[in-house]
Design a binder for these strands. Structure first.
Lengths: 151, 151
DNA sequence: TCCTTTTCTTTGCTAAAGTCAAAAATAACG
DNA sequence: CGTTATTTTTGACTTTAGCAAAGAAAAGGA
């Protein structure tokens, strides 16, 4: 049983590692095709239309430092993709939200990124897709809670 | 059916994205704890004891440029973790291999990295672990073949 | 043999990604 | 009102990465 765990852990470690490299390459390619820096694409992907975010919210959900986020937002602001206003309730906070231009772009981005994955997934069975979903979902949960405990 | 694909693709896109961010944070943490740069850790993880590699072999299996690899190897060489000798058969080629020190470190690294994943996986069932394995394995295959076609 | 072309690696330069520590601005607390 | 805490930004720096050109060696003609 302990042996079984070790085997499984080893195999999963290896696979996850390879998957990571491939997905990073995929993200880089996609960002480039859309004229975005990878960091910008990653940031845009997590902001939802109509919502506002503080710098730290974005930083922690991207697992980056606030100062890094300031710069990423600088870039998006310069391209008029996001707005940045001081919060009235607490003027230390920034309120970052998508502009109309940003909303349009993010909509397109999400659609095309999902379409890219659709292209990859189209030739396998529904149940295999479900296996992928379940497996990644489980793994994501584990890594995520592990991170919370260990950072 | 098409709708089903779209749903599944969307969900998988989202999850994979989150998993990626978490795993990157995990790698960064682990590398730091072992006094390595992330790129160095990633490189060491793929070289096997006793084997020799050319710069391009390493570059392509890490999805990086040869020039980037030259620098990563520079660093590992400076720490006496790898040897770099000119191939006798074809002196354009470098032959990169682990030193004894490197082998010891890589052994420890692989063991501890697998143990870290074991820690994450220890509280779930064997069948859930198998689901993770299957899901990630399928996904890795898809992304990998997609990359080959699209780069 | 000598010249050209090709292949593999390295070097120089540059950009992008990211962190840390200190500063600036504001809020909150005694 | 002064001190402390919080949020963001700035400056300086490191790490990661690629491109183009140079260097070095092999391979192929003529």
């Amino acid at each position: 049983m302990d042996v079984k765990l070790k085997q499984q852990a080893s195999a999963i470690t290896e696979l996850t590692f390879d998957l990571l490299r491939c997905c990073e390459a995929k993200e880089k390619l996609f960002a480039k095709e859309h004229g975005l820096k990878v960091a910008e694409f990653r940031c845009l992907r997590i902001v939802e239309a109509g919502k506002t975010y503080s710098v730290q919210e974005l930083a922690s959900s991207m697992h980056l430092s606030p100062s890094r986020l300031t710069r990423i937002i600088d870039g998006l602001f310069a391209e008029k993709l996001v707005d940045r206003v001081q919060s009235i309730e607490d003027r230390r906070f920034a309120k970052i939200s998508l502009t109309n231009k940003g909303q349009t772009l993010v909509g397109k981005l999400k659609e095309e990124y999902a379409a890219l994955h659709g292209e990859m997934l189209k030739d396998i069975s529904v149940s295999d897709r479900d296996k992928i979903y379940q497996g990644i979902s489980l793994m994501q949960g584990l890594v995520s809670t592990w991170l919370v405990k260990n950072v």
